[in-house]
Simulated scan of single mutants.
Amino acid sequence: MARRDLTGAVDFGFLEDFAAGDAEVIDEVLALFREQAAMWSTMLDATSEGWLDAVHTIKGAARGVGAFALGDACETAETEGAVRLESVRVALQAALADVAAYAHERALQSLKTPRG
């Protein structure tokens, strides 16, 4: 997986600008997003008592990393109800795939960049 695999689910330019290009901050934010996604995924079920809280939390985190389509899907689920949870799950998976491709590309670049 590499940058060529990005779907556009995450605007990494937004994240890079927000983090002022600080690679360590970018990596940390994306690692936290990935870790939290595992927890959120289990709550994205209409039978889960906390699905609405999960959707609200995901919305903020998504917009913070530049996953605007995911944030919008969450906002729709907040207003239209659990019937929209599938679109949140799909958008979350797309965002996670893009994050994985981006992280992979960054790891490859770090191998190519000489350390001085």
Rank of each mutant, 00 (worst) to 15 (best):
R115N: 11
A23W: 01
A95M: 00
R34L: 13
L85E: 04
H104T: 15
D53F: 09
D45T: 11
A95L: 03
R4H: 15
R4T: 15
A62V: 05
A101D: 03
L15N: 03
D53C: 06
S110D: 13
A82Q: 08
G64R: 02
V29D: 01
L52V: 12
D17R: 12
R63K: 13
A91G: 09
L85N: 11
D5A: 07
G60L: 05
A2R: 14
G66N: 01
T57L: 06
H56G: 04
D22T: 08
L111M: 11
E75F: 11
V83G: 14
E78F: 08
G50R: 15
L15V: 01
W51K: 06
H56E: 07
A20L: 15
D17V: 11
R89H: 10
V25I: 13
E80Y: 06
S41L: 14
G71H: 02
F33W: 09
L44D: 10
K112F: 13
R34Y: 13
M39C: 11
A94Y: 01
A19Q: 05
L44Y: 12
A73G: 03
T42P: 09
T7Y: 07
L108P: 11
L32T: 14
G13R: 01
G116C: 12
A46N: 13
E75K: 11
M43N: 12
G81A: 03
W51T: 03
E78L: 05
V99M: 01
A73R: 04
V83W: 04
R89G: 07
V90H: 07
L30N: 00
D45Y: 09
A54T: 10
A77T: 01
E105W: 09
A94S: 10
V29C: 02
D11L: 01
G81W: 05
K112R: 14
A100W: 02
T113N: 08
K59M: 05
L6E: 04
A101G: 09
S41I: 12
H56D: 10
G13K: 00
G8L: 00
L70M: 02
R84K: 14
A101C: 05
V10C: 02
A2T: 15
G64D: 02
A101F: 02
F68W: 04
R63E: 07
L108C: 11
R115Y: 13
L30G: 02
P114D: 09
E75V: 09
I26T: 06
E78K: 08
G66F: 01
A107T: 12
L44C: 08
C74I: 08
R63W: 07
T79V: 06
W51R: 05
C74G: 11
E28M: 13
A9P: 02
A67K: 04
L15D: 01
D53A: 09
A20M: 15
A95C: 02
C74Y: 03
L85G: 08
K59P: 09
F12L: 02
G50Q: 15
A9F: 00
G13V: 00
A77L: 02
D98C: 04
G116T: 09
D27A: 15
R63I: 09
A95P: 00
A9D: 00
F18I: 08
Q93C: 11
E16W: 05
A61M: 07
T47Q: 13
G13Q: 03
A9Q: 00
M43Y: 14
D17Y: 10
R4G: 15
R34T: 15
L92Q: 06
D72N: 08
A97H: 08
L111Y: 09
D5R: 02
L44M: 09
S48C: 14
E35G: 10
A46P: 15
I26Q: 05
A19G: 06
K112E: 15
